[in-house]
Design a protein around this nucleic acid. Structure first.
Length: 1023
RNA sequence: GGGUCGGUAGCUCAGUCGGUUAGAGCGCACGCCUGAUAAGCGUGAGGGCGGAGGUUCAAAUCCUCCUCGACCCA
């Protein structure tokens, strides 16, 4: 309806003198509708007159079975099946003479469904694998899974618990088998999910850390640390879960808010034990005030730390409420910056600063424990608190919270441990693995710190009660702070002193692998700096600074599901002595062989100690170690069993690329480089690519509670894997990636444009045979320009893929297809494609270029959109064995490169834009609709450019019926100052509209077919 | 609290060694076409570059501080 109204308006204007006669005077009235009947037809009031031929049938309109709607969710599984049947991955391996490229898969943990982060990671990997292959490499990808470890063991235990079975009642081999089954189940689910994303690889034979071979290699790799002397057994406070009854690795710890009872406790000065006390002038009854959030560590206190950088002072309490813990007249040493908060907490109404207390004074002081004298002297010393509590300087002490004094229990804190070691403080063993005080401890024996379900036990309150009784508590307050929790059980953790196995990363290794350095740390640091290419480059400093600071590697876990630290220790030897750890290649070989055949379960079989030692050492003199290895050791060893030992690994056991999220600087990149530097002397990778994390559409972390989680499965089912992949390609993976409905919409829209542009190409290629293609020399200049652009793009796209810059590749392709082709080339050439004689050179020339474009662009897209690219490919390349994924990026012909054509067409497009602008103005004024109604006059000041315009079919290029290139600036523009470089004057096209090509030309009506132009007349008569 | 990184139009991103009026695509608005049609084409409106200082003739680009977000660590 609207259309008719507009037509009316146009005619109305044409009858008006402002356009019809116009400023030029000599123009014909517009539009050229000369009879009522024509008007009626134009208005769609009357049908086409019976004597008018419908020339539509004489056109070569696009024809294709390539659907506009992708229906990716349905189509993709079919393509996957086809690729599987074809064995694409294996076929690619048969291409010989190619340099090898191996992206080594970082193994995801085999529990739970895939989330969007998994999908991002695997899609990026796939883009690398596919693009490297198409760049000419033999690009292999062996997917892997991380199978051992606490989360799986925990889930299996949970199942037992649901049946009312405690974990200690389950035989270890049965438990391990359950874990194995559990992992296997999730591997299947995840494998299917990854494959659905289009990831290509050796999915038939992935590597698993629980494969027997892998378990044997992991044990063998561990033995290298046994043999090179870097393994030692030490005692260390570690994060300990009283629920899981195990030490946790850093990666297994979550920090969450937790409310603790914080207490201020006075430690009376012991004048007897302090040095030079008499001369110090310090009052005998002064006390040092400490603050702690872990009351349960008080019985294990061995020192108090102060900072030499903090100002301290002695304060006298002058006024307190009745019955207050802090007493009137009391003398306390406190950091000056914290005295206000301390006094407030202690409800002190008035106090006085007596004098400054210097670090030198503090250094000489010794305090007594609040529980001194509580236990009868008959008890052994280890059960009494009568020991001196020295004051020690410590850099870790801050004056931001508390009192400026840190109560120090060497067995229950990292800093405490270091200070304790430095000053030879005794380690205490007061807390057992179930989170209770040892039963032999007076007063508190058997009290729970945290219960087996993670609740707070009675230990804290009993200790606080005792402090109140003995008059040592000054204040208490609830304190909310970030506190470590188990990532699995969410229970709060404690620091607990436990025997653990460590790898010393600063021990000089005499293993003949010292090219990069003598210690693991030196080698890793040197490797990071000089032997790894980082994408983006910032990854380097991140890993480097972590490696610089990290402490020794704690390898042992007191769990069941993993590879044991397969070694023996002498029962009668001291932990520090040289013969404590059994180092024997023959024993090791037995163990590795057994693991290879039976898996690490062999370690847990009855009689395994005898089996491995018999004939070599007296078994009864040795203790078998049943701790298992940190799972990071497993994954840190993947290079050994997945690269070094596999035929489809790499020759030197080194990967070309590791590709993971930035969290893996602490994780896999880290454990792998430590492991490899200890066993091979260098990093296991030549390149590392890191990507950011996935956030929701607003840049917030995804969480179930916020309901902003985007599941990859949902995207794939709704829109298709190619849409998800396009989202990856259009994002900058070096920082965090956002995903949400609006962002996916962008990907969908862009996908449609890509698809439709290809549909147009396919539609115009439908019956093109190779013999119709024309030679380069026969191509019109516009076609030559397109090939020039294609040549440029080829370099750009390849460079981008080499840099793993998929976004740059995608943007280049998309902009070319959109900006240069759809909007320019296609629009202009529709006339030739539809109207010219199919056997003629102009028609064939354009189609030749379309065919070339199709092949190149489709292959460029294949690493990003493997499904759509192959769907496209199969429309042009039928055949049972055909697939775009079996070809490389196509070579370009260097003759396509023509910089003179390029600069020429740059000018042409500039002038064309000016013409477009003028036509748009006329449209706004309702003077014309289609640009074919125009025949503008174009003046260009530069004569060279004028010549260029005359040398091409500029009217076609502007989509106008005719164009006049003028040497002179039209009179009405001559007063514009400064004189315009380009001036376009609108003129209506002269003549009648050709019923076939719709151009308005003067010769229409003078040919055999009266309704069409000369070109069309010629074409039609030859059809 | 510390380390690393990031914050440019509604969205996704460019922006070289500091140098005209900060760019592109998508989306949006308006218009055209109806022979790429649940398509295609054109035109346009949107930001002053997270904030505040500073260096400089000149800062989105360099420096300092702050803020927000992410990862890692405490």
């Amino acid at each position: 309806m609207q259309r008719t109204a507009r037509r009316k308006a146009t005619i109305g204007i044409s009858s008006n003198s402002d356009i019809g006669i116009g400023p030029y005077g000599d123009s014909l009235p517009v539009p050229v509708l000369t009879s009522l009947a024509q008007i009626a037809v134009a208005l769609r009031i009357l049908p086409m007159p019976p004597n008018t031929v419908d020339y539509k049938h004489t056109l070569m309109l696009p024809r294709t079975s390539f659907p506009m709607r992708a229906s990716l969710a349905k189509r993709e599984p079919k393509l996957l099946k086809r690729w599987d049947d074809l064995g694409i991955y294996d076929r690619l391996r048969q291409k010989s003479g190619r340099p090898s490229f191996v992206l080594h898969d970082g193994p995801p943990y085999a529990n739970g469904h895939l989330h969007i982060g998994h999908a991002l990671n695997k899609v990026l990997k796939d883009m690398v694998v596919r693009s490297q292959q198409m760049l000419g490499m033999d690009s292999r990808f062996v997917p892997g899974w991380d199978c051992h470890g606490l989360p799986i063991e925990w889930r299996v235990e949970e199942r037992y618990r649901e049946q009312g079975i405690g974990k200690d009642e389950v035989p270890v081999l049965e438990l391990r088998n359950e874990c194995r089954q559990f992992a296997a189940k999730w591997i299947e689910i995840q494998r299917e999910g990854f494959q659905r994303l289009g990831a290509i690889g050796n999915w038939q034979a992935p590597y698993l850390t629980m494969d027997f071979h892998a378990e044997a290699v992991i044990a063998a790799e561990f033995m290298k640390f046994v043999m090179n002397g870097s393994l030692y057994r030490g005692s260390k406070p570690v994060m300990w879960s009283t629920v899981e009854k195990t030490a946790l690795a850093e990666a297994e710890v979550d920090y969450e808010d937790h409310v603790s009872a914080s207490i201020w406790v006075r430690f009376p000065i012991d004048p007897e034990a302090s040095r030079d006390f008499a001369a110090s002038g310090m009052p005998q009854d002064a006390a040092v005030l400490i603050w702690t959030t872990t009351a349960w560590t008080i019985p294990s206190n061995r020192a108090i730390c102060f900072s030499p950088k903090i100002d301290y002072a002695l304060y006298e309490i002058r006024d307190v409420p009745e019955g207050n813990w802090a007493r009137r007249g009391e003398l306390l040493i406190i950091a000056e910056a914290l005295v206000d908060s301390c006094m407030t907490a202690a409800r002190v109404r008035d106090w006085r600063r007596v004098r400054r207390v210097t670090p030198a004074e503090l250094d000489k002081l010794v305090c007594s424990h609040p529980f001194r004298g509580k236990v009868p002297a008959e008890e052994p010393p280890v059960n009494r608190w009568d020991y001196p509590v020295p004051m020690l300087p410590g850099e870790h002490v801050k004056d931001e919270a508390g009192t400026g004094f840190v109560h120090t229990a060497p067995s229950h804190g990292e800093d405490d441990f270091l200070i304790g070691r430095k000053h030879s403080l005794p380690m205490t063993h007061n807390v057992t693995e179930d989170g209770r005080f040892r039963s032999t401890l007076p007063i508190f024996g058997g009290l729970e710190i945290y219960t087996s379900s993670g609740q707070e036990g009675s230990a804290n309150s009993v200790i606080i009660d005792n402090l109140i009784c003995s008059g040592h508590l000054t204040a208490r307050q609830k304190y909310k702070h970030s506190y470590p929790h188990s990532w699995r059980s969410k229970a709060p953790l404690i620091f607990r002193n436990t025997p653990q196995w460590f790898v010393s990363i600063d021990k000089v290794l005499d293993d003949g692998k010292g090219t990069l350095g003598d210690t693991i740390r030196e080698r890793a640091l040197e490797g990071v700096l000089r032997h790894v290419k980082w994408t983006p480059p910032t990854g380097m400093s991140r890993l480097h600074s972590m490696l610089e600071q990290r402490p020794d590697w704690v390898l042992s876990r007191q769990r069941a599901w993993g590879v044991p630290l397969a070694c023996f220790v002498r029962k009668d030897a001291d932990m520090g002595s040289g013969d404590y750890l059994l180092r024997d290649e023959a024993v090791n070989a037995r163990i590795v062989r057994a693991f290879g055949n039976e898996g690490a379960d062999a370690w847990y079989q009855d009689g395994s100690r005898e089996r491995f030692l018999e004939g070599l050492y007296p078994p009864e003199e040795y203790e078998q170690i049943f701790d298992i290895l940190d799972v990071w050791f497993d994954s840190g060893s993947t290079h050994a069993f997945a690269l070094r030992d596999r035929a489809d690994g790499t020759e030197d056991g080194i990967a070309d690329l590791y590709l993971e999220g930035t969290d893996q600087h602490r994780g896999w990149f880290h454990s792998s480089i430590l492991q490899a530097c200890g066993t091979t002397g260098r990093p296991p990778y030549r390149g590392v690519l890191t990507h950011g994390f996935t956030l929701d559409g607003n840049g917030k972390k995804m969480s179930k509670s916020l309901g902003n989680v985007v599941a990859p499965q949902a995207v794939v089912e709704q829109h298709g894997a190619d849409i998800l992949r396009l989202w990856v390609a259009q994002s900058d993976y070096t920082s965090d990636l956002r995903i949400g409905p609006a962002i996916l919409k962008t990907a969908i829209e862009n996908y449609r444009r890509l698809r439709n542009a290809f549909r147009f190409i396919l539609g115009n290629l439908h019956d093109l045979s190779t013999d119709q293609m024309v030679e380069l020399d026969d191509l019109p200049e516009l076609e030559r320009w397109v090939l020039h652009r294609l040549h440029e793009l080829d370099q750009k796209v390849r460079d981008a893929y080499v840099r793993y810059d998929f976004r740059a590749a995608y943007v280049a392709i998309f902009d070319f297809l959109n900006g240069d082709l759809s909007r320019f080339f296609f629009d202009i050439r529709k006339d030739r494609l539809y109207c010219e004689l199919p056997t003629g050179i102009p028609h064939r020339a354009t189609r030749t270029v379309l065919a070339i474009l199709f092949n190149h662009i489709a292959t460029w897209l294949a690493p990003i959109l493997p499904f759509t690219a192959d769907e496209l490919w199969l429309h042009r390349n039928k055949g049972e064995d055909s697939s775009i994924h079996l070809v490389d990026f196509l070579a370009v012909d260097d003759r396509w490169r023509d910089n003179s054509v390029a600069s020429k067409w740059k000018s042409i497009r500039r002038i064309r834009r000016a013409v477009n602008a003028e036509i748009e103005r006329q449209r706004d004024m309702k003077a014309i609709g289609s640009s074919l109604e125009a025949a503008p006059l174009v003046y260009v000041a530069d004569q060279e450019v004028r010549e260029i315009l005359r040398s091409v079919e500029f009217a076609d290029i502007c989509l106008t019926s005719q164009v006049i290139i003028s040497d002179a600036l039209p009179a009405e523009a001559s007063d514009i100052n400064p004189a315009p470089e380009v001036y376009v004057e609108f003129r209506p096209a002269v003549g009648e509209k050709c019923a076939r090509c719709w151009k308005t030309l003067p010769d229409v009506g003078t040919h055999e077919h009266p309704a069409i132009c000369e070109r069309c007349d010629t074409v039609v008569s030859q059809l």
